[in-house]
Computed example of a mutant assay.
Amino acid sequence: MPDLLLGGIVLLGACVQWLTGMGFALVAVPALVLLLGPTQGVVLANCAAGAISVVGLAVGWRRVRLKAMVPLCVAAVCTVPAGTWVARWLPEPVLMVCMGALVTLAVVLVMRGTRVAVLRGGAGAVTAGAVGGFMNSAAGVGGPPMSLYAVNAEWPVREFVPSAQFYGVVVNAVSVASNGAPRLSTPVWSLAIGAMAAGALIGRQLAGRVPEQRARLLVLLLALAGGVSTLGKGLWGL
């Protein structure tokens, strides 16, 4: 049953990622953390999100804002080790409280489309990348700072999605190198890979039928519920 539940979580995350261009980590990380624990849940999410970003980038790489990606990615790479260190040394209940709080805060900020002066220009790119790298390796959710930077920079969706995928490839690869690969059996790995493929197919089929705004709202509501649940479990453990 836990293995099937894991497969369902990965399938749902992959589906919403292909459906909306975002959301795998926000949807999947809280559930994976509850199922596998903070460390294994985060590194599995890093692996899956990175793989999905690679596939998506193969289609839209020409629209990546490479100039803007340099400070974002360099800053993120520099802070990934700090996130790994924090995740290894914090007690599990405290780490779950931090993860739940980060996910919940990130979702609220993205839903509000918050405009932040510090996230503009070159300094904004460095700030967003640094915070995103830390959050990605510590909590598995490095996308929201990148999303907030794009909102403040007024990027069009057609350029944001491939740029976010490029960022996802780099940051998740470095996070996996820093955290290590998840310790899963071969059957569970096979199930996760199959779930990613199935989720991608379902997401592509639904992409033209579900309004983008409604799909994004659903993703954020699922992520908010997961973040609050993780926060609650961590507080209970304390």
Rank of each mutant, 00 (worst) to 15 (best):
A106L: 00
E92Q: 14
V33Y: 06
Q205Y: 12
N152G: 07
T104R: 02
P182K: 00
E212L: 14
V77E: 00
M135S: 14
G100W: 03
V174K: 00
T104L: 06
M135I: 13
V108K: 00
N46Y: 03
T39K: 01
A68I: 10
T230P: 10
W155H: 01
L95W: 07
G60I: 10
L11A: 13
Q40R: 07
V10M: 04
V116Q: 02
M146A: 15
V176P: 03
V77Q: 02
A123G: 15
A207H: 14
G122P: 01
V151P: 00
T127R: 00
M146Y: 14
A14N: 10
A82L: 15
V107S: 06
K233H: 15
V55M: 09
V64H: 01
T127Q: 01
T230G: 09
V141A: 11
L217S: 09
G121F: 12
M22K: 02
P211E: 13
G113R: 01
G142V: 09
V77F: 10
F134L: 10
L72N: 04
R112T: 09
V16P: 05
P156Q: 03
G234H: 07
V171N: 08
W85I: 14
S53L: 04
A31V: 04
G37K: 05
A198G: 03
G83H: 11
N152I: 12
T114C: 05
L238V: 14
G168R: 01
T39I: 11
Q17C: 10
L26P: 02
V157L: 14
W89R: 13
G180H: 07
C98M: 11
L224T: 06
A200P: 00
G133V: 14
L224Y: 08
K233D: 15
M1H: 15
L220M: 12
G124I: 05
L235S: 04
G124Y: 07
L5Q: 11
L184P: 13
A45L: 08
V97K: 00
L95V: 02
A150N: 05
L44C: 10
L201F: 15
M196F: 02
V80G: 08
R62C: 11
L221H: 09
A197P: 12
G8F: 09
S175E: 13
V170A: 06
P182D: 08
V210R: 00
L95Y: 04
G124A: 06
N172G: 03
A173G: 06
L206K: 00
V107K: 00
L191Y: 02
G7I: 06
A130D: 08
C15Y: 03
L217N: 07
R112H: 12
A164N: 14
G8Y: 12
N179A: 12
G234D: 13
Q165H: 11
S163Y: 11
A51H: 01
A25N: 14
L44M: 08
A87I: 13
V74H: 09
M196R: 00
A28I: 04
G140W: 05
G129N: 10
A223Q: 06
A215L: 02
V86S: 06
G194W: 05
V97A: 03
G37E: 12
G180W: 07
A195P: 04
K67H: 12
V97E: 02
L206C: 03
V174Y: 05
E154N: 08
V86G: 03
A125N: 07
M96V: 00
V219Q: 07
G132W: 10
M135G: 06
V228F: 02
L191F: 06
D3A: 15
G50V: 08
V126D: 07
Y167F: 15
S147Q: 13
R88Q: 15
